[in-house]
Design a binder for these strands. Structure first.
Length: 278
DNA sequence: TTTTGTGT
């Protein structure tokens, strides 16, 4: 009798291992397609940096159930000949998040529901389904109106309208930065959702000799500041977030790409002072 | 064409 049970258990174990292997292989393929040199990982095992990856059409989300925020989103952009975005969908709850964050969870807070993977760029490059998923609340962080509608909108517009045509293909990783003080983390929230003090955006031209441009912008901007004021190294963003970006990049290449600020070739001066649309 | 809140 016990032999048959042992055999059944063995068959079940093999089945689970094969299924897990297949799932893992497929999941890794999907992540590799959507994220150059690997999705961000955390440097140290702390509750505030642990996250899990949510798959969407066209973009990945590194979701934290502790911050109740995406810690990063990752997506590629290409030049599109005839860019078209459908009408703005409604914001939607994402049932994959542990916490109930509804479309109206930000009402009356004074904060905007700020997209991390942006509506317009994702819509034009990755299509309607991907656009709808940018309106999942798992892709949203609390952003001050002057930040979201003015400076951050200008930056997103520069990425899709200037950088993408200039370089053809881009890898973008963007996300929030939180205050260092623990009490601020606990108390500074819109409902359950922690309020970031800044946001970062990393733009990479994925080539044999990759180049990168990174921004770190505080929430309290007026909105008309020149964008080049906020250029930083990727190392600085890693220090502020505790994340490791592009973990599959060889160490020597990472030192060059992440350790220094190189704005040559981006023609930032042409786009840093464009007026805001709103 | 590209961001939102408003309040039911």
């Amino acid at each position: 009798m016990w032999r048959r049970q042992a055999r059944n258990l063995g068959v079940s174990l093999v089945f689970v291992m094969v299924a897990t292997g297949l799932w893992y292989t497929q999941e890794r393929d999907y992540r590799d397609r959507l994220s150059w040199m690997g999705v961000p990982t955390w440097e140290v095992l702390s509750p505030t940096s642990v996250h899990r990856v949510l798959r969407n059409d066209g973009f990945l989300v590194g979701w934290s159930d502790v911050r109740v925020n995406p810690l990063w989103v990752s997506y590629t952009l290409q030049t599109v000949d005839d860019p078209r975005a459908g009408p703005r969908p409604d914001f939607q709850r994402d049932w994959r998040t542990l916490w109930p964050i509804a479309a109206d969870s930000y009402f009356g807070s004074g904060y905007d529901r700020g997209h991390l993977a942006p509506n317009y760029a994702i819509a034009t490059v990755h299509g309607r389904g991907a656009q709808q998923q940018t309106f999942l609340m798992s892709n949203i962080s609390p952003q001050r109106p002057d930040f979201n509608r003015r400076l951050w909108q200008r930056l997103e517009e520069v990425v899709i309208d200037h950088f993408a045509p200039r370089f053809g293909t881009l890898q973008v990783v963007t996300g929030p930065v939180f205050p260092e003080r623990f009490l601020d983390n606990v108390l500074n929230r819109v409902g359950l959702v922690e309020i970031p003090e800044a946001f970062y955006k990393i733009i990479v031209v994925p080539a044999d000799q990759p180049v990168a441009l990174a921004f770190l912008v505080p929430q309290n901007v007026r909105g008309n500041e020149p964008l080049d004021r906020y250029v930083v190294s990727i190392d600085e963003i890693e220090a502020r977030t505790g994340l490791n970006f592009f973990p599959n990049l060889p160490e020597g290449a990472a030192r060059v790409l992440e350790g220094q600020v190189r704005t040559q070739g981006w023609e930032l001066e042409k786009v840093a002072r464009l007026p805001s649309r709103f």
